[in-house]
Amino acid sequence: MIYALCFYLFATITVFSAIMVISSRNPVHSVLYLILAFFNSAGLFILLGAEFIAMILVIVYVGAVAVLFMFVVMMLDIDYSELRKGFQKYLPIGGLIGLILLAELLLVGFGWGLGGPVTTDPATAIPALNEMSNTEAIGSLLYTKYAFLFQMAGLILLVAMIGAIVLTHRARPGVKKQNINDQVKRRRGDAYDIVKVKPGQGLG
């Protein structure tokens, strides 16, 4: 009973906050609702017994991605009513994309029902929870059978990161930057000379 209650609680809040993400007037509120949606999805994952995915969802999406969203959205200075003017214009194409997504989701649902029981490949069978925690199970699968795909995903992300840095980085001339190595290497002799000045002669 408690399980069902938790499920409906998390699911309702997820759907509600997902709707509020697109319908609230203030973008900062939208991001906050997005965070609430992430949280409740993490709750749903915990109900499924997938605690590792739930924690990763919170760490990656709430702890890092949403912070960056927030960072950007907070600094926007836009007129929200101006933003809403195009609503009518983009309604048809937006609706179309929504319909396509809905159809695909329905297809997945029907396909699931029609496909019969899921066949378990003995090589990848999930061990029982009392034998191995599911963090361990994910790790032992990800770093053996799917090691190549895992590494590829990592490389793609690395390339994307380097690409973003290359595209946005510009070397500005005339900016003084601290170079710690130079500072540490600098010795007394580099900065000044000690000159023995004889009395009455000056430096000449």
Binding site: V28, L32, I35, E51, F52, M55, I56, V58, I59, V62, G63, A64, V67, M70, F71, M74, S133, T135
Partner: peptide, 25 residues
């Protein structure tokens, strides 16, 4: 006694930023 206790702590400490960022905004 969570199996993912360390990840839980890490998740919670990464959320700490929200209190500050929201108060600032």
């Amino acid at each position: 006694d969570l199996n993912v206790g360390i990840l839980y702590i890490f998740a919670i400490s990464s959320l700490g930023v929200y209190g500050i960022i929201l108060s600032g905004w």
